[in-house]
């Protein structure tokens, strides 16, 4: 019968319309600003810099090695390396970024900076409401805006952050072990030297002390 197909189709739309009152599957609209979907854990949008501890300036993991800057496909990262070294969160002397800018209007959220970072210093954020009325400066994020705490990282990507923390702790443990051994070796060498020389010069003594102190720190 002509019109059979049309009637069948209309029955289908009716089923969907009435179904939307009873079936969650058929009513999928979310009234966005008031109502929000739960955050999916793997989501990424723009990068941020992770810091350990309470002070973002002290705790930045970034050592400004420029790897992400070079690998970034649209070249949206700009880093200026420091001239001096500062102790990082575990006290090791490191370079730090004097400037770390990300141009969010250029960034395409590809995550390659995260993949290539050997220090787990840059991670992907989930913050997406970044609109600004300043077309240029408002979308150029400096390091004070980019720096976010490790706790925040744990909040947005719990599984990933736990894995990163475990790996970092292991690395630090190894590093400490190495330093201890090196310090012990240095101390032993110094002791042997002192024993060999009947009258060791006082300057040398203080020198070794200072260096071993710094290393064990």
């Amino acid at each position: 019968m002509l019109g059979n197909g049309i009637i069948k189709g209309l029955a289908e739309t009716a089923r969907n319309f009435f179904g939307s009152y009873v079936d969650k599957e058929r009513l999928t609209t979310v009234q966005f600003p008031e109502e929000r979907l739960p955050q999916i854990e793997g989501t990424r949008d723009f990068p941020f810099l992770v810091y350990d501890g309470d002070d973002w300036e002290k705790g930045l993991r970034c050592v400004s090695c420029h790897i992400c800057e070079k690998e970034c496909p649209p070249k949206c990262i700009f880093i200026e390396k420091s001239k001096d070294k500062k102790p990082d969160a575990v006290g090791k002397l490191q370079f730090y970024p004097v400037r770390f800018d990300i141009d969010v209007s250029v960034c395409m959220s590809c995550q390659i900076c995260v993949e290539v970072c050997p220090f787990d210093a840059i991670k992907m954020d989930v913050e997406f409401e970044l609109s600004s009325d300043d077309r240029f400066g408002g979308l150029l994020h400096h390091k004070d805006k980019l720096a976010k705490s490790n706790e925040y990282y744990h909040k947005i990507h719990p599984t990933e952050a736990a894995a990163v923390d475990a790996a970092l702790a292991e690395d630090r443990e190894k590093e400490k072990e190495k330093q201890k051994q090196a310090a012990a070796a240095a101390a032993a060498a110094a002791a042997a030297k002192a024993a060999a020389a009947a009258n060791p010069p006082p300057a040398a003594e203080t020198n070794t002390d200072a260096s071993s102190k710094e290393e064990t720190k």
Partner: peptide
């Protein structure tokens, strides 16, 4: 598993629709 239901519905909706044909 839920996708075939959508396909069935979709086919019923318009596949034999005279105007579409």
């Amino acid at each position: 598993d839920g996708f075939p239901r959508f396909l069935d519905e979709f086919e019923r909706l318009l596949r034999t629709n005279e105007i579409l044909m």
